[in-house]
């Protein structure tokens, strides 16, 4: 064994460490980038380049069945001027804003319970909480169509029991239905980050607070809640962003009053066939999400500073 090493490392080579093998052995950085490159390639081809072209197309205009590729702000102008676009956007933010607040409020106690009060089979609980998230989104929305429908589970059930005389119309094809469905569909996703940040809290901090004279409520508001804010923030983003762009839920359970910006974008690429307009709406949606996100981050950071 030893002899092999000596012949493989002649003294002449020691002065000039060169060659690809030597470089890779020496430079962890080069090796790291090499390992990352396939994943980055997929992201560049599947995300970065498409998004660049999306932005480019948003400045084009439709010309019959083709595109006029001269740059123009026409689509953005239209989006500003035509009230319906702004209405869709506002409705999207309204619906997903309500959904986000409701989901975070409803999920927080659950995350809290599992983090602080489940001691046996914790793993099973976490899996039970998150399991639905991984299964078909379409089918979970679909199940609400079954439940809320005009002749769905709730209405036919209540009718059968004689509690109502006619089907409750507000249940299906309404914003309420969209909000209920979205909240249910994203609940499992919201729990995880809040659970993680609650689980990380050192229990001795709570014991210290108790020792220093805080009761359960004050302990919660002075220790637990502030320390779990990062989880609440990530949960907020993880629900707000995808729900704002959703179009399946409004299409399946929303009525004429609840199409969202996602439905409008989808229409531009489908029936309306105005791709540049669709691209512009996509860019506008992204910018709005980024703006709302930044404001939210700024506000929460400010308020956290004032707490400390």
């Amino acid at each position: 064994m030893a002899d092999v090493q000596m012949s493989s490392a002649p003294s002449a080579r020691s002065q000039r460490p060169s060659g690809l093998r030597s470089m890779l052995y020496k430079s962890e950085t080069a090796r790291g980038y090499l390992l990352l490159s396939p994943a980055l390639l997929v992201m560049v081809v599947g995300m970065l380049i498409p998004f660049t072209i999306l932005i480019a197309m948003s400045f084009w205009t439709r010309d019959g069945f083709d595109f006029d590729t001269t740059m123009s702000m026409a689509n953005y102008q239209t989006a500003m001027d035509v009230p319906i676009y702004n209405a869709f956007l506002a409705r999207s933010f309204w619906i997903s804003g309500i959904t986000t607040v409701a989901t975070v409020l409803l999920c927080y106690p659950m995350a809290y319970y599992v983090a602080f009060h489940v001691h046996r089979n914790k793993m099973l609980w976490i899996i039970l909480m998150t399991l639905p998230f991984w299964t078909s989104y379409l089918l979970r929305v679909f199940s609400w169509k079954v439940i809320l429908g005009y002749e769905g589970v709730i209405n036919s059930g209540l009718l059968g029991l004689g509690l109502i005389d006619a089907p409750l119309e507000f249940l299906l094809y309404s914003q309420t239905a969209v909000i209920i469905t979205l909240a249910h569909a994203w609940a499992a996703f919201a729990i995880l980050p809040m659970y993680v940040s609650l689980e990380k809290i050192d229990r001795s901090l709570l014991e210290a607070a108790a020792d220093l004279g805080d009761g359960p409520a004050r302990r919660f508001f002075r220790i637990t809640l502030p320390l779990s804010i990062p989880g609440v923030i990530s949960a907020t983003f993880l629900i707000f962003i995808p729900t704002t762009g959703d179009y399946i839920t409004p299409a399946l359970v929303g009525g004429p009053n609840s199409p969202m910006i996602g439905n409008l974008i989808q229409l531009q690429f489908g029936a309306v066939n105005n791709w540049p307009m669709g691209a512009a709406l996509s860019v506008i949606l992204t910018l709005w999400i980024a703006a709302v996100g930044l404001v939210f981050l700024f506000v929460t950071r400010k308020s956290q500073e004032s707490v400390v």
Partner: peptide
């Protein structure tokens, strides 16, 4: 780099869908 790879988690799927559709058709 990590943030870049994780980006799809926080961007509405419809944006990816239409972006890729545009790229592929071009």
């Amino acid at each position: 780099i990590v943030a870049f790879v994780m980006l799809p988690l926080v961007i509405p799927g419809i944006i990816f869908g239409v972006s890729l559709l545009i790229l592929l058709s071009r």
